[in-house]
């Protein structure tokens, strides 16, 4: 493996009520696709948010490195501008801020250069078409009044417009119908094709992974990574469930 893009070493993170992540180790190389699985409440979203730098979670130990640089203490916006993207499980509504105006501002913030309007509009239009979004969504307030599916598509729209180097997708497929999952999945493939970017996909669902080449799978139980494997691990979990891994989590807890 070449120099990892994301390198997490012994990462622990906590909220006021207690520690949620314990000594996580995870490496993602450039362009690799990783899947993070685990039962509800295992800390999958917490890991995604901690990588992104959500101030709600306090890093209590270990380091996060991105592209060789220690970003453990780096502010959220700087991480984003370095190329980390987090697709939210529950995207926030921002009334009065149009999707288009928001994307333009975000692009300007990332590149430090004014956005070329004509090119931007063309690009936006084509990506929206790919995601089967009505063009009128560009003028609508960001996520305000969007259905669950529309919000998820809007996240993938942002992914494609902002072209990060690492995209963390936090249950982007949850609550979507079959057609929407297919569309979102096509969007993810387009991201890989265009940018060659890396992915960390948090999911319960194999459907979204069907058309993707998965390089590594990680199983998170009670804030610990209890198993790593390749793509076949996904099939096993789908067949047998998390039972075995929950057991492993208990054992590890006893050891510590």
């Amino acid at each position: 493996m070449s120099e990892p893009l994301l390198q997490i070493q012994d990462l622990s993170a906590a909220i006021e009520e207690g520690e949620l992540l314990h000594q996580i180790n995870l490496e993602i190389g450039p362009g690799e696709t990783h899947v993070l699985m685990g039962p509800n409440g295992a800390g999958k979203s917490t890991l995604g948010h901690t990588i992104m730098g959500n101030p709600q979670y306090r890093v209590t130990g270990g380091t996060i490195r991105f592209d060789g640089e220690d970003i453990t203490e780096m502010p959220v916006d700087e991480r984003s501008r370095k190329g980390i993207f987090l697709s939210f499980q529950n995207p926030l509504e921002v009334p009065g801020l149009s999707v288009e105006a928001f994307l333009r501002s975000a692009l300007r913030a990332r590149t430090g250069k004014p956005v070329r309007i004509f090119q931007f509009k063309k690009e936006l239009e084509s990506v929206m078409e790919l995601l089967q979004m009505d063009p009128s969504y560009a003028d609508r307030d960001l996520n305000a009044g969007f259905s669950g599916g529309e919000k998820k598509k809007a996240e993938i729209l942002q992914l494609l417009m902002l072209s990060p180097r690492l995209a963390i997708l936090d249950e982007t497929d949850s609550g979507l119908d079959v057609d929407a999952v297919r569309t979102v999945s096509a969007g993810i493939r387009e991201y890989q094709k265009r940018t060659g970017g890396a992915l960390l996909i948090i999911t319960h669902n194999a459907a979204i992974l069907n058309a993707l080449q998965v390089d590594h799978t990680h199983v998170l139980v009670r804030g610990r990574i209890v198993a790593d494997g390749d793509g076949s691990l996904i099939d096993e979990i789908h067949r047998d469930g998390f039972e075995k891994y929950i057991e492993m989590g208990r054992d590890m807890l006893k050891e510590t």
Binding site: P55, F88, P95, G96, F102, A106, A109
Partner: peptide
């Protein structure tokens, strides 16, 4: 705070994120 984090996670500075939320509120 979540909305501020959301916009910052797209690359906007904290100041810009808050200003955009407020401008949106006043839109």
């Amino acid at each position: 705070d979540d909305a501020v984090f959301y916009l910052m996670a797209r690359g906007l500075s904290e100041e810009d994120a808050k200003a955009m939320i407020v401008s949106g509120f006043a839109s």
